[in-house]
Design a binder for these strands. Sequence first.
DNA 1: ATCAAAGTTATCATATATGATAACCAAATA
DNA 2: TATTTGGTTATCATATATGATAACTTTGAT
Lengths: 67, 67
Amino acid sequence: MDDKILLEKIGDRIKDLRSHKNISQQNLAAKCNFEKSNMSRIEAGRTNCTISTLNKIARNLEELFKF
Amino acid sequence: MDDKILLEKIGDRIKDLRSHKNISQQNLAAKCNFEKSNMSRIEAGRTNCTISTLNKIARNLEELFKF
DNA sequence: ATCAAAGTTATCATATATGATAACCAAATA
DNA sequence: TATTTGGTTATCATATATGATAACTTTGAT
């Protein structure tokens, strides 16, 4: 799969999971210790993110899904 | 999971898949269009790789597993 | 129509991934 | 023993991700 498509899919998936928990980009970003603008960039697939960035997001999403 | 551990797990997984196909780091790196030293760095978990780098590796491993 | 909250985008400085080269080590083998 | 092959490590230049700020747009509610 093309990088661009993959990054967009990842972004969409994050957006889906986040939306299902009714949390704003702002809030999720805060939990991850970065700004909402960065979260927007990631969800839009406009950055080729690193494992560590995805890991931060994954951990915080997971946390939300525990409750 | 800690970033360090995750990156090591990813590296180990790549090494496993590569070994099962009896292909050298050298060869797999070449297919990915980069040097063996970079492949070593990734398998050792010594770099926080991007999606695009992992995608390159994944695509080439997949290719090997088709045959 | 106004307001606030959510999201987007552009831009910047800084940190770091990437791609490369070269030197090195270990193991196999001729 | 000398050579080859596979892997590791240090180092470098360059590209780009990250984290931040601010301005802007969209959306939803009152």
